[in-house]
Amino acid sequence: MTGTFSQIYIQVVFAVHGRNSLISLTWEEELYKYITGIITHKGQKLIAINGMPDHIHFLIGIKPSCCLSDLVREIKKSSNEWINAKGFSKTKFKWQDGYGAFSYSHSSLNTVINYIQKQKDHHQKKTFKEEYFDFLKKFEIEFKDDYLFEWIE
């Protein structure tokens, strides 16, 4: 019997609406567990997750049948509702529209995992805007400034 065999690894990056620093150290670990649950429930594999008060990164192994945009939409929608229901944010929490998705080979996984795990160290030297533009350039993704995140200058 024939089967489908694949290795598809995607790093997803998205920000809090308005780039507000609303993700608190006091509950970010719970948020990451919640997002892990969504990904697992959808039959995908979370490999690494971390972030900053204004954005998150996660690396997933996805099956070819997975529609990435549907998965990200569900993660954002469900985690918005969960954060607001828990009352973690003093203002209404919402993720910003859009996201970045960057693919990697199996041989790059350790580097990407390390990068995600060291987000807080990394952002002492580089802003989220610089980081995101670096991703777009590295992956040769054409973009218009009008369609990028709202940036805090």
Rank of each mutant, 00 (worst) to 15 (best):
I62W: 00
F149Q: 12
F133G: 02
W151H: 06
Y32P: 01
W151T: 10
L148R: 12
Q44L: 01
T91D: 06
F102G: 03
A101G: 08
V112M: 05
G100Y: 09
G98A: 08
S69I: 04
E30K: 15
S107P: 01
L46S: 03
H55P: 03
P64S: 11
S78D: 15
I56M: 06
S107F: 06
Q124R: 15
N110F: 06
G98R: 15
C66E: 11
C67A: 11
V72T: 03
K125P: 00
R73Y: 07
K42W: 01
A85K: 15
D146V: 14
L71A: 07
K90V: 11
V72L: 03
K86G: 07
I60R: 00
T111I: 09
P64E: 07
L59W: 05
I56K: 02
P53S: 14
S105T: 14
K126D: 00
N80P: 03
K92T: 15
I39L: 09
D145R: 15
K33Q: 15
Q117T: 01
K137I: 13
L109Q: 05
S69H: 12
H41W: 05
C67Y: 04
Q44M: 08
D70G: 00
Y34E: 07
K144D: 11
Y99A: 05
F139S: 03
Y99W: 11
F128A: 10
D54M: 03
D54E: 15
D121Q: 14
I38S: 03
T36G: 09
S69D: 12
C66A: 14
L109H: 05
Y132R: 06
F135P: 00
S89M: 09
K138V: 01
G98M: 08
F58V: 01
I113M: 09
K77M: 11
I56W: 02
G61I: 00
L68P: 05
Q119W: 03
G37Y: 00
E30S: 13
S65A: 11
K90P: 00
K94T: 04
T111V: 11
P64L: 11
T36R: 12
I39S: 03
W82H: 14
H55L: 04
Y132H: 15
S79L: 08
P53E: 02
F149V: 02
K125H: 12
I83K: 10
L71S: 09
Y32S: 02
T36C: 05
D145H: 14
T36Y: 06
K129C: 07
H122D: 01
K92V: 14
G87S: 06
Q96C: 09
K118N: 15
D121L: 15
I47C: 04
I60F: 00
A85V: 04
Q96K: 08
I62Y: 07
S89F: 05
D145N: 15
K137F: 09
A48T: 04
L109C: 00
S65T: 14
E81I: 13
I38K: 04
K126Y: 07
T127K: 08
